[in-house]
Simulated scan of single mutants.
Amino acid sequence: MSARDKDDVGSVPVYVIESIPVRGDHRVGPDEREREGIPAPPHLRIGPELGHGAMGHVHPALDRNLLRHVALKRLDKHHLGVDMYRDGFIAEAQITGQLEHPNIVPVHELAVGDNGVPYFTMKLVHGVDFKKWLASPEHLAGSAERLEQGLEIILKVCDAVAYAHHRGVIHRDLKPDNVMVGDFGQIYLMDWGLARLVKTKPASGQRAQMEAQGPVGTVTHMAPEQALGNPDDMDERSDVFGLGALLYELVSGQTPYGRPRNINDALFRATGGKVIPLETAAFGIHVPQRLNEIVMKAVAPAKTDRYQTVVELQKDLRDFLRGGMHLPTERYEAGSLI
């Protein structure tokens, strides 16, 4: 979770107080904490909400002992009475906490507040998400800078996903919003709330949120099998599609299924695997043939036609970068002076 839009704590010089715990009031009043169900553990000083999703809310917080700024994610109080949501929230923290990798945001703590609301704390990332990075005027679609820098970012995301797959976890919601680009080059894959175990099973078995039937992920970036909604049909290759969707958007500025009219149209396109050819989406942009082949293989509608592992996709991307094939080219007539 980024703090750039709220408090630029990343630019504050390191300081030492030499006593614990550090005093100071929460920056969220008691009435709001009670009304919204915001946990207020004594070792943290809670700040105003940074953002929220369907299941939870995120706040900046200060660890009163370590003077470390963290992000606190709490379950929405309206979901407390639903076992599947509560267990799913806890599962997200436990999964992320076990995935110790330089490109996966670290989880520090999982607990239940005095008000009964579960929460976990994680690293507070200072930077922007990849969606904002892609939309920046500094990274115009078609520019060599955007392509080279963006491929380096996606390769780091591939590292994170490949490690998760090795540990038996698929992400199932790979999209630019869930990739954080830090101010000093750090790349983090965020939000493992839709992750699924593929080598083990959760203690709650088929009642677990990760085993629920129905479309999973973000429809503009999900593989057809995710849109069709049978968890047993989703595997590592579903994440390969998600990575391919990131590549597709990096290269063309568009998403694989184009611009659907509404959610029903989006699901129709996703379930049918109606991926628009990259050369159509990137009309007017020079796309090297080899890169076009890599992207279209990654977003192939049929799992058997995709890269079978993230490592295979990574190898082709790295070979493409090392070969300098991303550099702009210019053709000259025979006999021309260069």
Rank of each mutant, 00 (worst) to 15 (best):
D191Y: 02
V311Q: 06
T280Q: 15
L317H: 04
I17L: 15
A162G: 04
R331I: 12
Y307E: 01
L247E: 00
V157P: 06
L124A: 12
D25E: 12
R146K: 09
E330V: 14
R45V: 08
V216Y: 01
R74H: 09
N65I: 13
D232P: 03
M122H: 00
F184Q: 15
A162R: 02
A203L: 14
G37L: 03
L134S: 05
D319Q: 13
V198I: 15
S11C: 08
M325Q: 12
T200F: 10
L110Y: 02
A111M: 04
R64I: 07
G258L: 06
D5R: 15
A3G: 15
N230P: 05
H165G: 08
S252L: 03
H79C: 11
Y85W: 11
L66P: 02
V157L: 02
R306Y: 03
H43K: 10
I17T: 15
Y307C: 01
H69M: 11
L321Q: 10
E148R: 14
R167E: 13
A160V: 12
L313I: 04
G205E: 08
D31A: 15
E333A: 14
H108L: 07
A203C: 10
G142I: 08
P41S: 04
F268S: 13
M55T: 13
E211A: 11
A40V: 03
M222G: 05
R196Y: 01
V310H: 02
G185A: 09
D25S: 13
G284M: 03
P42I: 10
V28L: 03
G273M: 04
D316R: 11
L134A: 06
W133G: 04
H126G: 05
